[in-house]
């Protein structure tokens, strides 16, 4: 199952400190829903303010992106900029 890594303190506030978990989701969109079911509010926070890095490649707002079976998914703040 894909592994989700939560390194920032803002997201960990939703998970009660949990910084790593496995998800059954196979796309980013499903992962967002699954996170929200397990930690209410986290899904919305991730959807609005976080990007995901799937095995090192950063995706922002990419619900259809596939999560490979053994992927490592890292939640990071969305990058904006100048």
């Amino acid at each position: 199952m894909p592994k989700v890594v939560i390194s920032g303190s803002t997201c960990r506030a939703f998970t009660g400190g949990v910084s790593e978990l496995e998800v059954t989701a196979d796309t980013v969109g499903r992962m967002v829903r699954e996170l929200d079911q397990r930690f209410p509010g986290l899904g919305h926070h991730v959807a609005e303010f976080m990007a995901v890095a799937i095995d090192g490649v950063i995706f922002q707002d990419a619900y259809s992106e596939k999560l490979p079976e053994h992927a490592e998914i890292v939640l990071i703040p969305k990058i904006g900029a100048g």
């Binding site: 890594v5 390194s7 890095a53 095995d55 490649v57 490592e72 890292v74 939640l75 990071i76």
Partner: peptide, 8 residues
Amino acid sequence: TVYGVTFP
């Protein structure tokens, strides 16, 4: 990286 992402 410290923010968790592995560089490509």
